[in-house]
Structures are given as C-alpha cells and as structure tokens.
Design a protein around this nucleic acid. Structure first.
Lengths: 163, 163
DNA sequence: CTATTCCCGAGTGTTTAAGTCAACTATAAG
DNA sequence: CTTATAGTTGACTTAAACACTCGGGAATAG
C-alpha cells in the first residue's frame, strides 16, 4: 500500500476542479497556481484521471477539464485508484499466495486493513468534501490570495456582482 | 503514508516470535527460514525493533530474541512505527503546513484517514493475532513443513512428548 | 577455543515518485 | 487564416527508498 503526494495531489486537484466547476472548464494552469502543483506533473496525473473516466477535457482557449459526472458520484477511493496508488495493503493483491504459494502469517490482517481503508475512502465523495467547512475556508483563502497576487480583482468583482 | 514489505515483514517476524515464545529465545535464522525473509534484512529490522523497546536479545549459542513485554502489550501499530513506516497519511505529519505554510485543501481528509488507520492498527495486539484461527493454521503448516524439510523430527517428537 | 548468535556499517540494484523539457494537436477568437 | 490558448504525449532526470548482500565484529554457552 502506498499513499504519497501523487494520490494526494490527485484528490486535491479533483477537489479544486469541483470547487470551481461553476465557471466552466478549469485549466491545469489555474489548478497548478492555486494548489502549488507542477503543471507538467498535473498533466501526467490528469492523463490518468481521464483514462479512469473521472474527468473530460475541452481543448483550445477557454478550455480545461471538467468532472465527467456529478460530485456525488466521484469517491476519493476512485481518484486514488485512477492514479495507480493502490489502497491494497497485502503483498499478494489479496490473492493469498504471499508466502511460497500459500498465505503468509499476516495475510488476513492486511486484508482487513485494506478493507477498512477502502470502505473509509469509498464513503467520501467530492461533494462531501466541498460542503465541509474547513475545505470552504481554505478554498476561500486560496481564491483571495490569487486575486491579490494577480490583480484579477475586476474579474472577481464582476463575478460576485452577478451572483 | 507507506505500508510495504518492510512493515509487513516486521509484523510477521514479531508474530512468529510470539508464536514460538514458549521455547525460549528465537533466533533470526529460524524466523528467516520459516517466514522466508532474508536473514540480513531481518537483522536490520530487529535493530529497529530493539531500539523501539519491543524486543530484547540474548547473545551466544541458544540465544535469539524475546518480546520485551507480554503479547497483549504490543500493538501492530507500534511494530510498524518502530521500523519507520509511518502510518500518517498527511504530507505535513499533521502539522498543517502542507501548502505554503497553511493547510492544503485536503489536509483534514488525510488527518481523518490517518486517525482511522491508526485506531485500527492500535486495536490489534500480537495476542489478538496469535489467537486467530487463520493464524494458527498457517503457523501449524509452517512448523510441519520445517520439520519435514530439515528432518528435525526427533527434536519435535521430544518436545511434544514433554508437553 | 570454538561455534553460535547478535550487532553494525557499508555498499548495490531496482523501482518509483516527482518533476522537467520539448514537440505535438485541437480550437476559439480576431 | 493566423494566433494564442490549452490539452496530449513521450522521453528524460533526479532523488529517495526498499530490499537486499557482504564482511567484519563482539558476546557467550559448551
């Protein structure tokens, strides 16, 4: 089992996508800037997310990525899985041939653990995360900082005036 | 977070130790043979387990390793921790400075996950594992195979006659 | 003394993560 | 049509870690 920056980046980027979905496609450049993730690395991750049917892309100016279904239908476990970070804790991928063709002493322990983690991460959708208060606070801070940095205030003021 | 062969080996070896504790110290050579783990690698792992006060050693012929407390007092989480495989799933080790000195979008998610895993693995002691039926079956198979392989039947027959 | 066993450090091959670079293709806007 | 935007792809690099191996020690039971 492995849970590193790779899977965390993927979930973070997907959440960023969900948070900014209302203004059309989101470019990787925006996500890169807001979340501090290398653009080229994001490209690699989104290639996998696309293959996993979690996002769809729009090319050209104004393009970017969109969630391929609604937020309720995308679980954290699926995102991590899509970027090849298995949540499985066994050595044998659950097959039970971990020691000389037989189950090893601790096989069942790792099976139980895998199931535990999988259930936990399968029970959380992007929609769940978006509605969490802590997430909203962080998102707001990130959007504000971005406005100050890039003096895109006009754009933001217009947007909030419309709302 | 990382859970690889390293942590799995450590738990397996500790469980082997617990299962064979009644006959005095257990040598790493025995564990290596029974569990199919490289002896030199076991030495490295047990150096860490020793530093973590989970085992104590007896040098010289007939020596080996013993659990430093009873089986009930040693949890799986402690073993994994001792060999430097953190169960923490956050990037920031829970500090909350994962993105430019602030919490990242998904910080709380990984905190929750870490807690989930830690609670699970802290709730399982070596004693719990030893009494599990699947573990006993595997252990029995391993002991039998070893007898056949090495023709140490005499030794085993004596042992069971004494019991 | 000698065989056994733990102890320790140094080194090695492989894999992977994480990131870079460069050269594409598709498309919206002027 | 041109141009700038933005996704798409592949090759490459760097660093770290895992999973070992090897060689020489030090302690101790017989």
């Amino acid at each position: 089992m492995r849970l590193t920056t790779k899977g965390r980046y993927a979930v973070t980027a997907m959440l960023d996508l969900a948070l900014h979905a209302q203004h059309g496609p989101v470019s990787l450049a925006d996500i890169s800037e807001r979340q501090g993730i290398s653009l080229s690395y994001l490209e690699q991750l989104f290639a996998k997310l696309r293959r996993g049917n979690l996002v769809s892309s729009v090319r050209g100016p104004g393009g970017g990525y969109q969630l391929s279904r609604n937020m309720q239908g995308i679980q954290v476990a699926q995102v991590i899985d899509a970027v090849n970070e298995s949540v499985d804790a066994t050595r044998c991928q659950g097959l039970g041939d971990c020691h000389a063709g037989d189950t090893c002493l601790t096989h069942h322990l790792w099976c139980d653990l895998s199931q535990q983690i999988h259930e936990f991460l399968s029970g959380i959708s992007l929609a769940d995360l978006v509605t969490r208060r802590e997430v909203q606070e962080v998102a707001q801070r990130q959007d504000l900082r971005r406005c100050n940095n890039k003096t895109q205030l006009l754009d933001k003021i217009e947007t909030s005036a419309v709302e």
